[in-house]
Design a protein around this nucleic acid. Structure first.
Lengths: 222, 222
DNA sequence: TCATGCTCGGGAAATTTTCCCAACCCACGC
DNA sequence: GCGTGGGTTGGGAAAATTTCCCGAGCATGA
């Protein structure tokens, strides 16, 4: 190999990191020149070694990998970043690309894909692993702005209440509506947002910032 | 090495699997004799190759890894199982041990730990990575702890699935249970956790770190 | 062996969900 | 003015789920 692609890996799971470092090193044309287990270290190391491609796991503690992508791109707008994550959810991919990532590969993909993605991204192309691209394509939240725009004001209002109220019927009382109407709205909202359960609905609300995530979530486990 | 420890790896993330297989193979005394990406395959492979130690990721789709542990132990009560997961949450560890696991190592541990744990477990000892053992030690689940401890292993498992699955009935299929049973569990879980709706249930899950919150859209950029 | 606790599901009533449809009001353009 | 369209409000009716309660099967442990 004339010129190996110089890669930096960022993943907070030390064992996993170690594992796929070995995997990549077996690939002709790829050289792992740096590693980091958290965003801050990653940022510094990037400036020191200037790798050709950065592979980041976005589900890292703290502000997560998405944030790191933004930082790297802010410092070096030409930074080539491949997201490597367990999330097949297309929403994550969307966010990653919006933040400036060039590739998105799930950990459940075929092992060869990661190396392919690195090569593609290095060459200036984009790379998405098929499981996600498919979801994006037949996407519930495909391209444009959030599905929230499809909601009428009333629907939006009821959605907000749904996302916090326990007894679904309390909303009816609060809004002076028949429980039936609320049920109908509930139904239509789920249709428009493309979710099939209340759980999904809440995930949607969290993503869109309609409701605040509860205090702790991931910060607790230290 | 006179006698290498014969290990089977179970993880739905193909790349990760491939990665730490390589990692383990570098360890003297450990030989990876089988792999599986899902529970069913894992169960079959186990019966075929009878590995000395099984390493499973418990956050697998469908019937989670906890379930697999139960199955393996049901078939071979001497099965030696090491849980290898990203969850630092002590509650997961509790349930894993209740199901019959002998070791619990987080993916963010030092890479050497997994190999150590395998050796320990093979020798009949238990192994817990320090980040979790610490959490276990300082209370959390010993006495009071969260309402989660009131849940039986099965309830806990179904809760996890509830928190991600869309059509509640899919769970039934995945676990090979009657939809009725799942409904009953759903009901009991809500009772025990003191929540009134699915929405509250998810809030609970987020608070306890059982599920990761999606990337919050409202924070900057995008 | 008996008690206890977990798992699994049936039964049955109450409720909700899921669609489809109709009525009303209001704004808009012609 | 008057149709057109969209937002709001709810009825109807079948299907599904939720909510309790209960019992059987099976380990585990005293």
């Amino acid at each position: 190999m004339a010129q190996a692609i110089r890669v930096m890996l960022v993943d907070d799971h030390a064992i996993v990191l170690e594992g796929y470092r070995r995997l990549l090193e077996k690939q002709a044309g790829i050289e792992v020149v740096a590693e980091a287990a958290d965003s801050r270290t990653a940022y510094q190391r990037y400036k020191e070694v200037r790798p050709d491609v950065v592979v980041v796991d976005i589900s890292m503690p703290g502000r997560g990998g998405i944030d790191l992508i933004g930082q790297l791109r802010a410092w070096d707008s030409a930074a080539r970043i491949v997201v490597f994550t367990m999330h097949q959810d297309a929403v994550y991919a969307m966010h990653a690309f919006q933040a400036g990532a060039k590739g998105y590969v799930t950990k459940s993909s075929n092992p060869l894909l990661l190396a392919d993605a690195i090569v593609d991204v290095f060459a200036g192309r984009k790379a998405i692993s098929p499981d996600v691209s498919q979801e994006l394509a037949l996407g519930r939240l495909s391209g444009d702005a959030s599905a929230l725009n499809a909601l009428s004001p009333r629907e939006f209002e009821i959605l907000r209440l749904l996302l916090e109220a326990s007894p679904a019927a309390e909303i009816a009382a609060a809004l002076n509506l028949s429980p039936k109407t609320v049920a109908n709205y509930h139904y239509v909202i789920k249709q428009k947002l493309g979710v099939r359960s209340d759980i999904e609905l809440l995930y949607f609300g969290l993503r869109e910032g309609l409701v605040a995530p509860p205090p702790s979530a991931q910060s607790e486990a230290l």
